[in-house]
């Protein structure tokens, strides 16, 4: 299994928590899925634990969305493989704080 350098864009509040600016590059082995990206993010940046998935349910938080390749991938299973362009690093996996609240 070869490694992948996956690009991830975080929303502003999570960048502040993780103390990063710009994109995050994650080195992933194996299947590249939303779950594997979140696992790697939480390992690299413990301050992000529980911010994307509810720790009690393991589900994506309702106001967090996943975009990539101009598609909303939020409703796919968390263990579903992401598009090849994300796996190759051509496109970023974007974690979005949804517009909500008026």
């Amino acid at each position: 299994m070869t490694g992948h350098a996956v690009r991830v864009v975080l929303p502003a509040h999570l960048k502040t928590l993780a103390q990063v600016s710009g994109e995050v590059i994650l080195a992933l082995d194996g299947d590249v899925t939303p779950a594997s990206i979140i696992d790697a993010l939480e390992d690299s940046y413990p301050a992000l634990r529980g911010t994307i998935r509810d720790p009690a349910t393991g589900r994506r938080r309702p106001f967090v969305r996943f975009f990539a390749c101009e598609e909303d991938l939020s409703h796919r299973a968390l263990d579903e493989s992401l598009p090849p362009a994300v796996i190759s690093g051509t496109e970023a996996f974007c974690i979005i704080g949804a517009m909500a609240g008026g």
């Binding site: 509040h13 928590l17 301050a47 529980g50 911010t51 720790p55 938080r61 909500a100």
Partner: peptide, 28 residues
């Protein structure tokens, strides 16, 4: 906390000048 990203806990050891995120898992 926020409705977007849930609960974060913060701790300061210098009277509030600097802060560090600590554990945020509250499992019943």
């Amino acid at each position: 906390s926020t409705g977007w990203f849930g609960q974060i806990m913060q701790r300061s050891d210098d009277g509030g000048a600097t802060w560090e995120p600590v554990g945020n898992e509250f499992a019943y």
